[in-house]
Design a protein around this nucleic acid. Structure first.
Lengths: 213, 213
DNA sequence: TACAAACATGAGTAACCCTCATATTTGCAA
DNA sequence: TTGCAAATATGAGGGTTACTCATGTTTGTA
C-alpha cells in the first residue's frame, strides 16, 4: 500500500488536505510533516502539539504546513485515517475466513488481544482515539470505521445464524464493537492489572453475545 | 510565575475554586457565573464558550471570574461535579433496596431508561460528558463517579451471589457501568431510532451479564 | 472607627492558530 | 533552450483567546 493520496474527504468541512501534493518534492515534505506531528503527539499529546513546532521539526515553514493542511485538526485526522485504513484491512482478513462459531470465537479473541496490545504500545493511536469525543471530524471517522468493522462482524453472524433478524445482528455487532473500543480506552486509563481484567471480562461478555445470540 | 498558594484539590492539578467564596454576595455571584456558563454550553457547547462571554452574561468582570475559577476547564468541572453528586444519590437509592434478581433487573432497566432520557434532554450534560476523554480532570471525575456507581451495583451482586469471586463481580459491575456510559454516548450521536435499538441491545446484554453471571 | 481580609475591576500580556503578499521552483509546450 | 503558468515555499503579521495583576472597593469585626 503506497500512494494513498487522500485527496478529499466525505461531506462538509471534514478535514482534508487543502491541496493535494502533486510533486515528488512536496509529497516527501508532507510525509515529514506527518512524521513530525506523530512524534510530537507521542511526546506530549495532540493537544499540546504546536503547529510551529511541527513545522520546525519537519524542516518546513509554517506556511508550507498550511499549504497542505487546512488546520491543526486536519493533521491529526490524516494520521487517524491511516490507522483506520490499515486496521480495517487486518480486521477484514481476520473475519473473512470464519466458517463456524468456534472460528469466530478464535478470531474475535485474537482481534481483541491485538487491539489491546496496540493501544498499550502506541501512544499516538491512544491519543488520537482519546480525542475522538471532542472533535467532530474525528468522531465521524471513528464512527465510520467502527461501522465498517462491525459490518464485517455482522456478515459473519448472518452466515452463522441465517434465521436471525439481520437488523438485530447488525445492531449487536455494532454495539459489541463500540463496547470494545470503549473497553480499550478504559483499560489503558487504569492500572495495568485492572486493565487486563477488564479486557478479559469484555471478551467474555462479547463472545457470549456473539456466540449464544 | 506560577500560582504559589492555590488551595489545591485532590491529587494533581484537578480543577478547583481558586478561592472559596465566603461572603453571601460572592456566593451569589459564583452561582450566576455557573448559570451563565451552563446556558452558554447549552447554546454552543463548552468548546465555543468564551470566558469573556460568561463574565458578561453573569454580570461580573473577567477578573471576578478568575477569582473563583483557576481556568476555563474548572467551570465545566464544577458543573460536572454537580451532576455526579446529584445522580449518585439517585443511583444509590435505586439500587439500595434491591433484594433479588428480579428486583435488580427492574432497577437496572429503569436506571438505563432514566439515563438515556437525561442524555437526550440535557445538552449541557451531553456536552460535558462528551469532553470527558480529552480533559484529564473531567476524565478523573468521570472515572471516580463511575467507580462509585459500579460499587453500588457490585454490592447488589455480592448480595445476590455470595459464592462468586468478589473481585470478578466488581470488575463486571465496573465494566457494565462503563459500557453503559459508552452506549449512551453512542446512542445520542446516531439517529434516534438506531440509538433506541442500541440502548435496548445494551440493556439486554448488561442484564444477562448481571443476572446470569 | 479602624483596619485587614475578601472581593471587584478591566486594561494589558502572552500564546497560539492561521493568512497572505511575495518569492522561488517545477513541469512542459513551443 | 526558453518562456510561462501552476505548484510550492516563506515568515512576518493579524486576530482571537485564556489568563494576570496592579489598583480600587466592600465587608466583617475588634
Amino acid at each position: 500500500m503506497e500512494d494513498t493520496a487522500t485527496p478529499v474527504s466525505p461531506q462538509e468541512q471534514i478535514a482534508s488536505p487543502r491541496r493535494a501534493p502533486s510533486q515528488q518534492r512536496s509529497r516527501e515534505r508532507v510525509e515529514r510533516m506527518l512524521a513530525a506531528a506523530s512524534a510530537l503527539i507521542a511526546e506530549q499529546g495532540s493537544d499540546a502539539m504546536r503547529m510551529g513546532e511541527v513545522a520546525e521539526r519537519a524542516g518546513v515553514s509554517i506556511g508550507s504546513l498550511y499549504q497542505f493542511f487546512p488546520d491543526k485538526r486536519a493533521i491529526v485526522w490524516a494520521l487517524a485515517e491511516r490507522y483506520t485504513t490499515e486496521s480495517q484491512a487486518c480486521i477484514s482478513a481476520a473475519l473473512a475466513g470464519v466458517g463456524d462459531a468456534e472460528g469466530l470465537g478464535q478470531a474475535f479473541s485474537e482481534l481483541v488481544d491485538i487491539y489491546y496490545r496496540l493501544f498499550l504500545a502506541e501512544p499516538v493511536m491512544r491519543d488520537i482515539w482519546s480525542g475522538t469525543q471532542a472533535d467532530k471530524a474525528l468522531r465521524q471517522l471513528e464512527l465510520a470505521d467502527s461501522r465498517a468493522n462491525a459490518e464485517f462482524l455482522a456478515a459473519v453472524l448472518k452466515r452463522l445464524r441465517p434465521a436471525a433478524d439481520p437488523v438485530a445482528l447488525e445492531t449487536t455487532a455494532f454495539l459489541v464493537w463500540q463496547m470494545g473500543e470503549a473497553a480499550m480506552r478504559l483499560a489503558i486509563s487504569v492500572e495495568r492489572q485492572e486493565g487486563d481484567r477488564l479486557v478479559a471480562a469484555y471478551k467474555r461478555m462479547a463472545l457470549r453475545e456473539l456466540l449464544d445470540g
